[in-house]
Amino acid sequence: MFETYDPMRRKWPRRFWTVVAMAAGIYALLPLLWVLSSSLKPAGEIFAGLSPLTPQVLIPSSVTIESYVALATSSFPLALFNSLFIVTVTVIAGLAMSALAGYGLAVFRFRGRAILFAIVVISFLIPFDAVALPLAELFRDWGLDNTYFGLILPGIGNGFAVFLLRQFFLGIPRELIEAARVDGMNEFGIFTRIVLPMSKPALISAAQLIFVFQWQSFLWPLLIATDPRMTVAPVALASFVGQFEVDFGLMFAGCVLTIIVPIGVLLYAQRYFTESVATSGTKG
């Protein structure tokens, strides 16, 4: 952190920068506030107050939870549960695999290292949605359609996460690892007991990559999770779009519930962001 030595602070008071930070946050939030307030509006009022622009856009004339009640009795709670379960397993398993691979590529010197790294790079250049079709066929042959396993797998192999962690592990001083070896620690021990504990911010960043990929995935579940019992939140949200009418109330209420989860996870994960500052003295 370098803010302590910020001479600009004298010219620009901290309060000014706080206002800028707030403005950025509110800009990001404003569209979501509309979603939130619309989810609490009575049906038919969602587009009220748009033109001319009135406060009614963000403030419902009367608050109703009918959309949430309707949502509770639909298939959405199940879809949200499926998404949560899938994303949890994906992040844990994907993070474990990516960390191992990132470490393997960063720390060990061996012939063929460049080739293995090239495989990782090429893999994340391949647009998943463009190759989903042949893969779906393969998954179906393996009987993985309509299984949690089939939904989780594509999120686990995340080349970006491997790349990110490799970048981070490259910054760990080699002497640290060599010294631990001399200390008699085995490689897996070095990895889990020395390297991982000092890599929390990088692990959180990698988890974020894996999380967002899986949380947003739409085409893959559409192809492979055809049983409504296996449906995921983004697909369930899209199904509120009828042929002639869109149930905006249900869709927005579902969206609100879908965002609450990442908010909670982030609030929790942020603790590790500051903690890393304490450990950063060990590496340079």
């Binding site: 990001a28 949200l237 899209a238 969206c255 990442p262």
Partner: peptide, 12 residues
């Protein structure tokens, strides 16, 4: 708050 938009389902 600044991060949140990334978690909103893209269709919405």
């Amino acid at each position: 708050l600044v991060f949140l938009p990334a978690a909103v389902p893209q269709a919405v």
